[in-house]
Structures are given as C-alpha cells and as structure tokens.
Amino acid sequence: MSATTRSGRPSPTLLTTRLVLRRAVVYGGWFWLVVVVLVASATGRYGPDGFSFLGYGRQAVSWFLFSQAITLVAASLRVHVGSGMTRRSFVRGALAAHTIIGAAHGVVFVALLQLERLVHQAAGWPFVVHDGLDATGTRLGLLLLDFGGTIVVASLSGLLVGIVYQRVSAWWGTVALPFTVGPLLVVLAVSQAGPLVVHDPTPARLVAVVGSVVGAGVVAALAFALLSLRAPVRLPPV
C-alpha cells in the first residue's frame, strides 16, 4: 500500500482499558453524586438516630457495577472487534479496567464511610452501621478488604453474566444466572456469614474472606475469558 502506517500506537489492551475507565469515571461520578445527596439529606433529617445511611449502600454499589459490567459486554464486544481488535485484547482490557473500577469504588465507599463517621463524631451523634461496623473502625486496609473485595467480584461477575448472554439466547442467559451470578453470591454469603474482618481479624476469618474474594474473582475472570475468546459477534439488523 502506498499509505504509511502510524507508529507508536498504544496497544489495543491499553486503549480498551482507558476507554472503559474513562466511561466508568463519568458513570461513577454520577452514581456517587446521587449517593452523597441522598445520604446527606437523610443524615440531615435522621442523623441524631446515629445510623450510617452509607452503610446501606454496599449492596447498591455492588449491583451498580455488576450491571455496568453487563452493559459493557453487551455494547462493546461488537464495537471492539468491528474496530479491528481481537477478543484477547477485549478480555485483558475489560478485566483490568473492571478490577480497577471495583477497587476504586471500594476506596471511594470506605472513604465516604469514614467521612460520614467524622460528621457523626463532630455532631456528637452515635455511628451505627447496619452490618456491624462500629464508629471506631479506622483500620482502612481491613475495611477495604471487607467492602472492596465484594465490589470487585461484583464487577467481574457482571462481565461473566454479560458474555453468557452474548453467547447464548436471552432465555438460556437467564437460566444460567444462578451460576453466572454465583461468584458474587458466594462472596456475599461468606461476608455476611460472620463478622467483618475489621472486627474479627483472625486467621480463620481472613482466610474465609480473602479466599472467597480471590477464588470467586478468579473463577469469574477465567470463565469470562474462556467464553469471550470464542464468542461470535452477533450483528444487529440493518
């Protein structure tokens, strides 16, 4: 060809990761803005009762990222392959981006939880989180393990659900939900079966929580990768 190729192009994996992250920043910004507004208004009215309203948001952020990951697969695989990139780079980019997104939301969640605790302290109110996190919980690493792990696995489970819907019909995708949502359900079950690690940092509890997060995360990621690498791209009708 007489045209010349441009050198120094970033790798498709990096391009994919960046694209997903850029969109996630926008979606995440709106999500946390809504959460902060809701929590602030609830705190302003019911703050003296001492309940952490953000504490109820753990499920919300998990399922928000879960659905966001499903949307990514539904909307992006065809565009990715249609733009001249391989499924391999899609898998790498999606996994990297959604691990980062999950971790980042975990950090934001824990940071806002600390902020809410400080507000309660400053106002002289008690601070009670519905699932047992007390007002003195300041071991941020353990808090992040308690909340961030679940959020990352939620994100990876969403990718798995998305690719299963792509590979099979909507009917079979729905039938398979108990398995594809399984990694997230396992982590939630282990997490809620005992005290938070921040309250019970014993080896047994650490192994249970870390093991469920890592195990479920790896299973979800591997299943997503295996199903994506052979996925045909379905064309919408023109």
């Binding site: 498709p12 065809r78 565009v79 392959v81 249609g82 733009s83 001249g84 990139m85 391989t86 391999r88 780079s89 791209v233 064309l235 023109v238």
Partner: peptide, 15 residues
C-alpha cells in the same frame, strides 16, 4: 493481531 486491524468491515454506520 497482525491481520484484523487491517480488515475493515463497514455495514451502514459501521460497528
């Protein structure tokens, strides 16, 4: 990875 960036399929507005 060598071939697919250089194959461009366009249907209507492309994918």
């Amino acid at each position: 990875e060598r071939v697919v960036p250089n194959v461009c399929l366009i249907r209507e507005a492309g994918d």
